[in-house]
Design a protein around this nucleic acid. Structure first.
Lengths: 216, 216
DNA sequence: GACACGCGTCAACACCCTGTCGAGAACAAT
DNA sequence: ATTGTTCTCGACAGGGTGTTGACGCGTGTC
């Protein structure tokens, strides 16, 4: 039910010992710099110097700047999937509490890596690899939510309505965009302490048509 | 109630006759090319050659590639605001129909300029000016929706709940992201013929808590 | 008609960034 | 010691951006 993370070796072709330090250094430098400026404003030279190597050497570890971001994104996704756990399988216990838990955990994970999340959202437009990875992951989450909605409908807790898949897409999309605005802080955004409650409220309204779904 | 468009002269410093053709040619070339490749893959030289001028001459008309996109975005926003009209002021007539009309009109406008919309969404991350413009416009729409929700609550058609502003932000965010996915066609997306119905359904559920809001 | 003056135009330049190549240094295993 | 792989970087090629300085071209002015 809970989707699996795609974790392929994104960096060097073969694994070795001393080079691992450099690879980590590049990754760490990237995440640090992402806290200060945009991804576009970080050059490969910045990454290389930050890791104590020269620019050509950078290319030994990563094929491009994008690959670094992709590796960072992989980690966050893995963490998010782990945090989500099997919450969706235990919905019937207490729907409202479980949905809240799900949204809350995602919020915590993304919030803990907002620099990476923000950067990925920003380059998704221009970077095909990030776009594809994100699309794949999103598809997994959408399917998980879709299945959960169908399950709630089957047991009579939620009324029929929109195709569950469409509803799942809409709600996931909302979360993504709302989190982005909240973390980026530009444009109209929900205040960070309220964001879980706001998202939860819309989810429950859309899925159950009222604010108090029935436990089993 | 309906937000006003911000239309400042984004291009040349002074207005003249023969140069207007070139300016239009640049804009037209940009929108055409945007239908073929990403904004990032279009160079200033492409724009200039498409308009029959040299690259340095391009800079006479626009200070940067971004400024061209900004001008294009201005137009779309103006069109969207015009299309929205005063629908929100006539909500009490028939809430469901009016909300549907609002969403439908935005859908038509954005769908008619998807290349521009997509490009703006893609560069919003790396381009501060586009980000600011979009944030301003979004703020206007959020305020309009917020006021409409408050009005519906005042007349007893919609129940109290989330702060109207937070709800307005969440719903607007959802629309933006869902449209983007639908137009871009990457990742999980709602099929284009269904998108208005899906968005409307979530809006009504979140605002009215049931599918059939009461007319006045 | 000659003269200014701002519009419109572009060749050439300076700069920055990406990605690659080839020559090697460091280090392991035999 | 030799061989092979990991690792490193100077130097180059290519492509994009933004700027500068000079040169035509129209229009109004006296």
């Amino acid at each position: 039910m809970t989707p699996i993370a795609t974790s392929s070796p994104r960096g060097r072709r073969t694994a070795r010992s001393s080079g691992d330090d450099r690879e980590s250094a590049i990754l760490a430098t990237a995440e640090r710099l992402l806290g200060e400026r945009t991804f576009a404003d970080i050059s490969i030279d910045d990454l290389a110097r930050g890791a104590g190597i020269s620019r050509p050497t950078f290319y030994f570890y990563f094929p491009s700047k994008n690959a670094v971001l992709l590796t960072l994104l992989d980690r966050v996704i893995e963490e998010a999937n782990a945090a989500a756990g099997d919450v969706l399988d235990r919905l019937a216990e207490n729907p409202r509490a479980r949905w809240r838990e799900l949204i809350h955990r995602f919020h915590e994970t993304f919030g803990g890596h907002r620099a990476v999340v923000l950067a990925c959202a920003q380059v998704r437009g221009t970077n095909g690899e990030v776009r594809r990875l994100w699309a794949t992951v999103m598809e997994g989450w959408v399917q998980a939510i879709e299945a959960a909605i169908d399950a709630e409908r089957s047991r009579g807790a939620a009324p029929d309505g929109l195709p569950a898949r469409d509803l799942a897409i809409a709600l996931n999309s909302m979360n993504e965009r709302v989190w982005y605005a909240t973390f980026a802080g530009d444009g109209p955004a929900v205040a960070e302490p309220d964001v879980v409650a706001v998202l939860l409220d819309v989810w429950l309204a859309a899925i159950y048509r009222n604010a108090t779904p029935a436990p089993s």
